[in-house]
Nucleic acid binder design. Structure first.
Length: 488
RNA sequence: GGUCCCGUCGUCUAACGGUUAGGACACCAGAUUUUCAAUCUGGUAACCAGGGUUCAACUCCCUGCGGGAUCACCA
């Protein structure tokens, strides 16, 4: 466990919705911050004006809030806290301009006047020739439109000369060193023609100004790290520690994306997953503490999380395992009241309740389903019969037993329920009455119980029969049985 | 194609030179049982391949193969 307070940031871009991979990145940042008593910062990287999605900003905040990953500092619901703001990049343009100017003045960056079409042509030519295309200042052509707006590029060769180095060296948190040949890195754009910075530049400037100590980000950024390293060096800034997280991939092995249904992290809330279960699952996807423990509270994760036990290889997102874990949280980690409350919300949002359905009925119905559901979205369908009389068909009633027999069994059952001692609470009295019936007529208990089950629930699988009758009430049960008999 | 990363049951993973390669999800079987679950017990199932190094390799090295990421005035 690290002990020096750390400053980490989660820096999403509102070009779409936050997805599950982003949530895990945020989580690992969060865990490291909490563990060291450090600071978890939220920064908005909105430098892409073209693809900016207004609702994206709101969704990011909502999602982080639902997962319980509130930042200590930075952007939050339009408000900001912290001493190194603003935390929205579009509000930091003067900062970027300042450092770009500094680089230009030092001869390490230049205004790139090459036309877009010309640049594209060169790239295509290189592609056809199957050679690597690395753009250099020496390839600059005279612009046909000298008054136009142009981007500023970093001059890699000048930078290397300035740094008196022949290679770009950087190492990750685990000490694994990388030695990159600068010849493979082109003169990338720092400031776009619209005067907004690129990701590569804004990222470095902000991480430095915001005093970020550790950068935990997705593995897809690993190949842009040498660019960042050069920038830190050339600006004379201390480099942070880079930690690249293995990708979360879909069942086909490709990076998790919309194709796999991973469009929006909030969809897990809507499907009825518990945030605590999601956090637990996500934490284990790419990290473990080396023991066989797999259920962790948030506090335990904070305590035990460690950078050096982060997995290297990508992990497939396994919905079955997530469902299993969510099931554990539903039946073991939630208190009964918490469960009922959460379940009630789900039912009220559905159309299965009647206007006069009492909260007592909801409570007892929902409790009977607790160990059957994996996600709350299954609940309305499972319990609907408690509140509204089900449609019972003759076909369903007679799939296994002959119609006449079913009819007789049901009539006798209804009668047997009359003899239930109403002074005895619970389902024991009901069970006794029905079992006595089975013995008396030498029936197969499965046939009788199954028939009653179908008659009162309209389905072949349901919670325990006697508990169900008990919740429904003997009167209602008899009414339903009689309605079923009428169909035979 | 260039550069880089990765490679243990179907899936998530343990192992840090010496284990019958362990756990979990899923799956199968059994127990329980009024159905479905839940629970308990048991089972099937993996070191990408080939070379080295070593008394000993899943562990170290090399090559190959396979998968992925990235090559924008997107992040």
């Amino acid at each position: 466990m690290s002990s020096t307070p750390v400053r980490v940031r989660f820096a999403p871009s509102p070009t779409g919705f936050l997805h599950i991979g982003g949530v895990r990145t945020a989580l690992y940042n969060y865990l490291l911050a909490k563990q060291t008593g450090g600071t978890f910062i939220l920064r908005l990287e909105d430098t892409d004006r073209e693809r900016f999605v207004v609702e994206g900003v709101e969704q990011i905040v909502q999602a982080l809030d639902w997962f319980g990953l509130k930042p200590d500092e930075g952007f939050w619901e339009g408000e900001e806290t912290g001493h190194v703001g603003p935390y929205v990049q579009s509000k930091r343009l003067p900062e970027y301009e300042k450092y770009v100017q500094q680089l230009v003045d030092a001869g390490l960056a230049y205004k790139s006047v090459i036309g877009t079409a010309e640049y594209e042509d060169m790239r295509k030519a290189a592609q056809i020739a199957k050679t690597a295309f690395v753009y250099r200042r020496s390839m600059e052509s005279k612009s046909t439109n000298p008054d136009g707006k142009f981007p500023i590029r970093l001059d890699i060769e000048a930078c290397m000369k300035h740094l008196k180095s022949r290679s770009i060296d950087w190492e990750a948190h685990d000490g694994v060193a990388q030695q990159i040949d600068p010849a493979t890195i082109e003169d990338f754009v720092l400031l776009k023609a619209d005067e907004f910075p690129t990701y590569n530049f804004a990222n470095v400037v902000d991480d430095h100004l915001m005093e970020i100590t550790h950068i935990l980000r997705g593995n897809e950024f690993i190949s842009s790290t040498p660019k960042h390293a050069v920038l830190f060096d050339v600006l004379g800034w201390k480099r942070p520690i880079w930690v690249h997280l293995p990708l979360i991939i879909g069942s086909d092995g490709a990076k998790l994306s919309k194709r796999h249904g991973d469009t929006d992290a909030l969809q897990y809330r809507d499907k009825g997953y518990l945030p605590e279960a999601m956090i637990n699952y996500l934490a284990m996807l790419g990290w473990n503490d080396g023991t066989e423990q797999e259920i962790f509270t948030a506090d335990e994760l904070v305590e035990k999380f460690s950078l050096d036990r982060i997995q290297k290889s990508p992990a497939k997102f396994d919905f079955e395992r997530l469902d299993w874990m969510n099931g554990i949280y539903i039946r073991e980690k939630l208190t009964e009241d918490e469960y009922v409350e959460r379940a009630t919300v789900e039912l009220k949002a559905s159309d299965v309740l009647r206007d006069d359905t009492s909260s007592e009925l909801i409570r007892s119905a929902v409790l009977l389903e607790r160990e059957r559901i994996k996600v709350f979205s299954e609940l309305p369908d499972f319990v609907s019969f408690f509140f509204k009389r089900p449609k019972v068909t003759k076909d369903l009633l007679t799939t296994k037993v002959a119609p006449e027999t079913v009819k007789t069994m049901l009539e006798q059952s209804a009668a047997a329920l009359d003899s239930v001692d109403k002074n005895i609470k619970g389902h024991d009295a009901i069970e006794k009455a029905l079992r006595d019936l089975v013995i008396e007529h030498d029936y197969k208990s499965g046939e009788v119980f199954s028939s009653i089950r179908i008659a009162i629930t309209g389905r072949t699988t349901a919670p325990g029969l006697f508990e169900t009758i008990n919740v429904l009430g003997v009167e209602e049960t008899r009414t339903r049985i009689q309605a079923a008999v009428a169909r035979l």
